[in-house]
Design a protein around this nucleic acid. Sequence first.
DNA 1: CCTGCAAATGAAAAAGTTTTTCAATTAGAG
DNA 2: CTCTAATTGAAAAACTTTTTCATTTGCAGG
Lengths: 130, 130
Amino acid sequence: MKFEVAAGKIRGSGYKATPQRLAVLEAVAAEQHQSLGGIRARCPEVGMVTVYRALDLLSGLGLVRRLDLGGGPRYELAEDHHHHLICEGCGDITEFEQCPVDLQDLPRVGGDFEVRAHSLEVYGTCSACR
Amino acid sequence: MKFEVAAGKIRGSGYKATPQRLAVLEAVAAEQHQSLGGIRARCPEVGMVTVYRALDLLSGLGLVRRLDLGGGPRYELAEDHHHHLICEGCGDITEFEQCPVDLQDLPRVGGDFEVRAHSLEVYGTCSACR
DNA sequence: CCTGCAAATGAAAAAGTTTTTCAATTAGAG
DNA sequence: CTCTAATTGAAAAACTTTTTCATTTGCAGG
């Protein structure tokens, strides 16, 4: 997604597309599973308070997704749909695109629960750690 | 799992099965998706530092699993295998036992990555919130 | 292109969480 | 029962996140 599109979404929802917000979005996009530290490093000019608020807003708008993979929060662009393979030895995180989840047959799904998204994390040990 | 079995596992791994550790384990077992606050409430006699250390140990031994469902860490007994349906409206978390994940065909699985566990969270809206 | 103002920002402080330190206590092997 | 290494708890330190409030700014409307 181009930043102009994102800026449009922000404005379209009644918020201001400030340089700080766009800088945070860019920082999230710059690296997979971006950490707060990584964002801070790429936006030294944006105050930490604003980073927190921007991430809240961008998550609320569905532009950014917050990940909880252990070891503090991480963020990624919401447009990416993929899952995570997490090595418990070295902490390395890799992604895979192929989605091995089939929600069709779940009891409440299609019934009283409307699914918007899902996240899957697979934990184990990579070859280097074995 | 009975607590004697858990105590045995702790001792068998070279740690001491202290009353504090068993109290924390019991507190985790007492409620689904137990929070730190919930543990604290059920173990007022155990210092918070010890709670943190006990949870680290129990997770390391595979007796307890840490969940990151947003809104702070949660803990559950590792023996339960189930997934979570999270309503983004009211924050309500329900579980389902049926596992809609099939890891067989994943690229690295069976190859260089050895799977130990996985976790799946499904986000959406419950009927009450719609 | 200006103007005005509600929304947004940043610095500081407050609140909350997790880790470290260290002296005192204790589980459990022998 | 004794002894010792492991564990605990209180206090303090370190870190993270939220709140507050005065100042600044994006942008809608003229």
